[in-house]
């Protein structure tokens, strides 16, 4: 491990030397295959898919399957997020197919196509907290309860937030973005098609408790912990100001590692499961730079 001087010494350091040190420390946490995230993404989807035959055949009661499905949706985003940043493998590498497999499959319960997530997420990184260009700026809210209320309001049919990702893709205007838009349309129609078909074959309750309600609850959770909390108050701009570290009441696992989201924005290719260790190693540097680290 690279030795990091104390905060006072770091503050006195030449800016270029500090940059080099920061990068050297961060580099220690990159690389390798994040098997945990791969197993998480594919395993989570397998569990969620298995709930359908298990409940429809009567082997598993719906009251057990419902909370499992909620958990599945909550867990479905982050493995895809690793793939979005090419953490599993980069284009041209032998395991790039696995990166894309995890990316495409893991967000199926969330009805968020991989390419839509990837392109809009890159825009979020590039324009974090920009009131116009950050596609996730709509999750900004004054406090935790307002964040939950805002998340529900954003899903109302008349909400302008409904078009935030579509507007972002239109702004990008590339063939890739157009394809992603078509994938979003297909995913939405497919999702509704499944719900309608299940409902009209006498399985509306199963569809409601395995997908419709879990998705609403899961989206609320994801918007709260993955978008609102790490960027709150959503006003800071720039590399060391647009995200923060925070101590979550539900801990690191309950907040899915988002306490250390500042590390992700600084070094997006550090795997999620290594961000706590990377944060601890980088903390004096971040403190010296005046980052918002709360009491973590």
């Amino acid at each position: 491990m690279v030795a990091v001087p104390d905060v006072a010494a770091l503050r006195a350091m030449d800016p270029r030397a500090l940059n080099r040190l920061e990068k050297t420390v961060a580099d220690q946490f990159m690389g390798g295959l994040p098997w945990g995230s791969i197993a998480w993404g594919l395993g989570n989807l397998a569990v969620w898919l298995s709930l359908w035959p298990l409940t429809l055949s009567g082997l598993l009661p719906l009251w057990i399957a419902f909370p499992v499905a909620i958990l599945n949706v909550m867990l479905s985003y982050l493995p895809s997020h690793e793939a979005q940043h090419r953490i599993i493998a980069r284009e041209g590498e032998p395991l790039f197919w696995l990166n894309e497999l995890v990316g495409y499959l893991s967000t199926i319960p969330l009805v968020l196509p991989y390419q839509v997530a990837r392109l809009t997420h890159y825009e979020h990184h590039t324009h974090c907290n920009d009131p116009v260009l950050d596609p996730d700026i709509g999750t900004k809210a004054a406090g935790p309860w307002q964040s939950i209320a805002n998340s529900i309001a954003r899903r109302q049919p008349g909400s302008t937030a409904q078009s935030a990702y579509g507007d972002c893709l239109a702004r990008l205007g590339t063939p890739e973005a157009q394809t992603a838009g078509l994938q979003a349309l297909a995913a939405q129609l497919g999702y509704l098609g499944v719900l309608f078909a299940m409902a009209w074959t006498g399985h509306a309750l199963e569809a409601a408790l395995l997908w419709w309600l879990p998705r609403h609850i899961g989206v609320t959770y994801i918007e709260f912990f993955l978008s609102w909390a790490p960027h709150h108050p959503g006003t800071g701009r720039g590399r060391y100001r647009d995200t923060r570290a925070f101590r979550s009441a539900v801990g690191n696992i309950g907040s899915m590692g988002m306490q250390f989201h500042i590390v992700h924005h600084l070094y997006p290719r550090i795997p999620l499961m290594r961000t706590p260790a990377a944060y601890r190693a980088l903390r004096p540097i971040l403190e010296a730079r005046g980052c918002d680290l709360e009491k973590l």
């Binding site: 049919p157 349309l185 509704l192 719900l195 309608f196 409902a199 009209w200 006498g202 509306a204 309750l205 569809a207 409601a208 419709w212």
Partner: peptide
């Protein structure tokens, strides 16, 4: 066509999903 479809999607959702869901709940 798609724009029109999504404009009335809440109505379609009400008839296509919520209606059968309410019926199933009433029966249960």
């Amino acid at each position: 066509i798609l724009g029109g479809l999504f404009r009335i999607m809440p109505l379609l959702f009400g008839l296509g999903f919520l209606g059968p869901l309410v019926a199933q709940l009433l029966t249960l």
